[in-house]
């Protein structure tokens, strides 16, 4: 844990060192990559919010006693887990307009990423909710707590710590998947690197810097997840 923190610090220091050492070299393409990074961050935050919301809605919907809700959640999960993200992004951007729904590139990217990863997250949430001991539900039934309140106040708070590791892994996957948004004409880190490569032809430097930026992002989420996990499980007894 502390080692990884040190590794990240070292990487950032290395990046800065590289900037200083070869300032005239990096100056030509780094600004474009950093502009791309802001697009990546913006898309990541918006689609992460949608992804977490959809995970809980579909994951809990799949356990709903009302059959149509259960079926709808299952169909959503199977369709979005079964198709490729790139195809979904393309479909949202190029096919939906002919159904009368015109999306901006940002909307298409956020919807595609959020819905696609929401389907994977729904399985994580479903697993976490079923991991809550059934005695908890029986006890709240015995205490005459309504079903929705039992779900909201009893089951979900206990499911969240179980779901956090899975969801934080998926969030890393999602940030990596934002590299695809250039398919819908957004200029993110990846697309900016391709453009800069065509202009300056400094292939190795440009793509290495892009890889390092992505690596820093995913390590950041990994820490965030680990800290959140420690924070939400600190009241639990540690085994051994």
């Amino acid at each position: 844990m502390t080692f990884r923190l040190a590794a990240i610090a070292a990487l950032i220091a290395f990046l800065f060192g590289l900037t200083v050492a070869t300032f005239s070299e990096l100056r030509v393409f780094l600004p474009a990559l950093l502009r791309g990074a802001t697009v990546t961050i913006e898309i990541s935050i918006m689609s992460a919010l949608l992804f977490w919301a959809m995970s809980f809605i579909a994951g809990i919907g799949r356990l709903n006693p009302i059959a149509p809700i259960r079926w709808a959640s299952t169909v959503y999960i199977e369709v979005f887990r079964g198709t490729s993200l790139l195809v979904i992004l393309f479909w949202f951007f190029f096919v939906l307009p002919s159904f009368g729904v015109v999306l901006t590139p940002t909307q298409a990217a956020v919807l595609g990423l959020g819905l696609n990863f929401g389907a994977y997250g729904a399985e994580v949430v479903r697993g976490a909710v079923t991991a809550v001991p059934s005695g908890q539900k029986e006890a709240s039934a015995a205490l005459n707590i309504p079903d929705w309140k039992c779900m909201l106040r009893i089951v979900i708070p206990q499911a969240i710590p179980v779901a956090i590791p899975g969801l934080s892994n998926l969030t890393i996957e999602m940030i990596k998947a934002t590299a695809l948004v250039s398919a819908v004409t957004l200029v993110d880190i990846t697309f900016a690197s391709v453009q800069q490569n065509q202009i300056h032809y400094r292939t190795l430097d440009i793509f290495l810097v892009a890889l390092i930026i992505y690596y820093c992002f995913s390590q950041l989420i990994r820490f965030g997840g680990a800290i959140l996990e420690a924070r939400t499980t600190r009241h639990l007894a540690r085994g051994q």
Binding site: K176, L211, Q219
Partner: peptide, 20 residues
């Protein structure tokens, strides 16, 4: 590192760097 970076960037990396 391989797990922490996007596959698409790795594809571009190999695609553009190998010929060089």
């Amino acid at each position: 590192f391989i797990r922490g970076t996007p596959l698409l960037v790795q594809i571009f990396f190999l695609f553009f760097v190998l010929p060089q």
